[in-house]
C-alpha cells in the first residue's frame, strides 16, 4: 500500500513537471542580403561585383541554448540538438524544440556546424541528420573524417573554364573541427549568439511559440574577407576555409516572434 502511494506521488510529480514546459519552433529563413533565397533561377551579386546564382545551400545548427537575463541557460538535450537546414527542403527549415522549461528568455545561441565531440563520436552516436548513410551523406568528409558545416554551391559567369573545370560551378564546403589526438586540423567551429533585444520569449505551459531566424548567405562571400568567386571557385578543407567561416559567423539574425507558422509565411509573402 505504502509503495502504491509513493508511486502515485512520484507519478503526479512527473506529470506536473511535464506540464511546466512549452514548445519552441524555430523557422530558419534563408536569404541573400534582404531578399528571400531562390535556388537556381535568381541572380545575385557579391561585394566584388560578381554575378552568381545558388544551386544548393545547407548547414548544420547544433547545441542550441536559450539564455535568460540572469545568465542561466536552458540547453536542449544533446541528442536532440542537431539539425540540418536545407534550402531545397522547406520541412528542414522548421526546427521544433520540445519540453522547453517555462520561463522568460532573452536570447539564443547555437553552434554553426557540429561540435568536436560528436565529430569524433562512434558510429552509434550518428543518427538522424548525422547519419553518414542517410541525411548526412553529402555533409560528411570520408577521407578526413568530419562533418561539413556549411555548404553552398552554384554557378557564376566569372569562373574561367579549364581542363579540370568544365562547368562554371563554385563549391564552398566548410568544415574541420580541430581534429583529435595527434591529428590537429583547422577549427572552423563557430558559435552564434542572438539577442531578442527588447523582446522576450515567455515560454508558457503547453504552448507552442514561434521564432524566425534569418540566415543571410551573402555573408559567406562578403565580410572581413570579400571572396572573389573567380579567384576561389572551390573552397573546401584548405586554409582559406577559415576566412569563409569568419565571414559566415555573422550570417544569422533574430527575425522576431510569430503567433504561428502561417503568420511567418504571410510576412514572407508580404516582404516579396
Amino acid at each position: 500500500m505504502k509503495n502504491i502511494l509513493i508511486l502515485l506521488v512520484s507519478f503526479s510529480y512527473l506529470m506536473l513537471n511535464a506540464q511546466s514546459s512549452g514548445t519552441l519552433t524555430l523557422q530558419f529563413d534563408n536569404m541573400v542580403g534582404n531578399e528571400d533565397m531562390v535556388l537556381n533561377t535568381k541572380n545575385y551579386k557579391n561585394a566584388m561585383g560578381e554575378d552568381f546564382n545558388i544551386s544548393l545551400f545547407q548547414y548544420y545548427v547544433s547545441n542550441i541554448r536559450l539564455m535568460k537575463s540572469d545568465g542561466s541557460e536552458y540547453a536542449v538535450p544533446q541528442n536532440e540538438s542537431y539539425f540540418l537546414i536545407r534550402e531545397q527542403d522547406p520541412k528542414s527549415q522548421t526546427v521544433t524544440l520540445n519540453n522547453v522549461p517555462k520561463g522568460k528568455y532573452t536570447g539564443i545561441r547555437f553552434v554553426i556546424g557540429i561540435d568536436s565531440l560528436r565529430n569524433t563520436a562512434d558510429i552509434s552516436q550518428r543518427k538522424g541528420c548525422l547519419d553518414v548513410g542517410g541525411e548526412a551523406k553529402d555533409m560528411y568528409w570520408a577521407w578526413n573524417s568530419g562533418y561539413i558545416f556549411v555548404k553552398m554551391e552554384g554557378t557564376s559567369p566569372v569562373i574561367e573554364l579549364n581542363a579540370d573545370r568544365k562547368k562554371p560551378i563554385f563549391m564552398y564546403h566548410i568544415g574541420l573541427f580541430g581534429g583529435m589526438g595527434d591529428k590537429k586540423t583547422l577549427n572552423n567551429i563557430k558559435e552564434t549568439k542572438l539577442s531578442f533585444g527588447s523582446k522576450k520569449l515567455k515560454v508558457k505551459d503547453n504552448t507552442t511559440h514561434y521564432m524566425v531566424i534569418k540566415t543571410d548567405a551573402s555573408h559567406i562571400l562578403n565580410g572581413s574577407t570579400n571572396i572573389s568567386i573567380a579567384k576561389n571557385p572551390s573552397i573546401m578543407a584548405g586554409p582559406f576555409s577559415a576566412k569563409i567561416a569568419d565571414n559566415y559567423n555573422v550570417m544569422f539574425s533574430f527575425g522576431g516572434f510569430a503567433k504561428s507558422l502561417n503568420t511567418i509565411s504571410e510576412t514572407k509573402t508580404a516582404m516579396k
Binding site: 558510429i123 577521407w143 578526413n144 573524417s145
Partner: peptide, 23 residues
Amino acid sequence: FKDFGWDGGVHHLDLFAVSPLTN
C-alpha cells in the same frame, strides 16, 4: 591502429570504409 589511410585522415575503423566506398 588509431588512424587509417596513408594520411591518417580517418580516426576510427568503423568510419574508414566510407572513404573508399564514396571516393
